[in-house]
Design a protein around this nucleic acid. Structure first.
Lengths: 187, 187
DNA sequence: ACCGTCATGTAATCGGTTACATGATTCT
DNA sequence: AGAATCATGTAACCGATTACATGACGGT
């Protein structure tokens, strides 16, 4: 009933030939790396900067993850790795056909589960914290976020960013507005 | 022959007396456990059920965590542990004064950071998935959530649940509405 | 009495976070 | 040139997810 056959012939802790391993289930972080590299090859450090500039607004990634995750994905054949020969020997990663296929499949799958709120401030309220004492700080945070999103929205739209990205900013604006509304009612 | 018997009890890496250890930084999971036990003592399994019934609506916890986290907190003196002597030897945990203090401090601290959206569906959109193909499933999910929240809200309010809990449900309703609005615009 | 399922718990694994380390660059 | 700072990378640790394991219980 479980997904992968864990049962067959162990005896040899396999490993070694990188090509075509039993594919683990990729994590969101994996797809972030694939998605970014699909736009353009780059080093982990560059990826870090791209995240900081765009995606980081609603989904941050630890920079160390970008090193480990690119290495894993290369090991699994979803990326290729090209080291520069002098100095830092930075590794530039590019997505492979296999990687693009994995990414495309993930993008096409519409059955992604629900998202939890996981808001620390709400958690405190749930456990009996005084709303009035939490609310001002939250209100401040969400107002700032709202302003930020609204400002980058203008910019991005004017310079013709892809619709997908604009949509995520719109979603951010919507949720920020809702948060402002909610916490406003508690101050 | 060699100075210290290789294996156990070497040199004394301190530890041992549970009382007053250097306190690690508690995680959200820690506070969930503390918060739940502050209402009423219970076994990890009971906690699991309480989470499933209430909190799980916006913050799920893996049941295995409830075993490890209660053990850790007891070790640290924030909980006490009482084993039943027959059968399963279930362990019932209660919060200590120290634990209540830690919880109260956390609840009182209003400087909790912002929350990320971290929505998989949005992530897909960001990376170029076709909104129209994602939207119907999302719409369905958020509509169901909205209905669910609205229904439990009535119930909880009628039986006089604490305000904090009602507020979290209200927040859930608000965000669900916003999500419905957002995804509706993309179908 | 046995079987299937639910209740309850532990162990192994893995990703993520934090801390550390070293190579470049700028400034004085 | 040396110090300070930034860029870039690796390693250690720890919590969380997953898988596994065993006890209890209802039904036939």
């Amino acid at each position: 009933m479980d997904k992968d056959a864990a049962l067959d012939s162990p005896a040899v802790p396999p490993e070694q030939h990188a090509t075509k391993m039993a594919p683990r289930t990729l994590s969101p972080t994996s797809y972030i790396v694939l998605g970014l590299l699909d736009r353009e090859p780059g080093t982990p450090y560059e990826l870090k900067n791209r995240v900081a500039r765009g995606l980081g607004n609603f989904w941050t990634v630890q920079h160390a993850q970008l090193y480990t995750e690119t290495a894993r994905l290369a090991e699994e054949g979803l990326l290729t790795e090209r080291s520069e020969s002098e100095g830092r020997r930075r590794k530039t990663y590019s997505i492979t056909k296999t990687g693009q296929k994995a990414l495309a499949e993930w993008l096409a799958d519409s059955t992604t589960g629900r998202t939890e709120l996981r808001d620390l401030a709400l958690l405190k309220i749930f456990f009996g914290a005084d709303p009035a004492s939490i609310a001002p700080a939250q209100l401040e945070i969400h107002r700032a976020r709202l302003a930020h999103f609204e400002s980058i929205y203008e910019t991005l739209r004017d310079i013709g960013f892809p619709r997908g990205i604009l949509l995520t900013v719109e979603a951010g604006i919507g949720h920020a507005r809702e948060s402002v509304r909610f916490w406003s009612s508690l101050v």
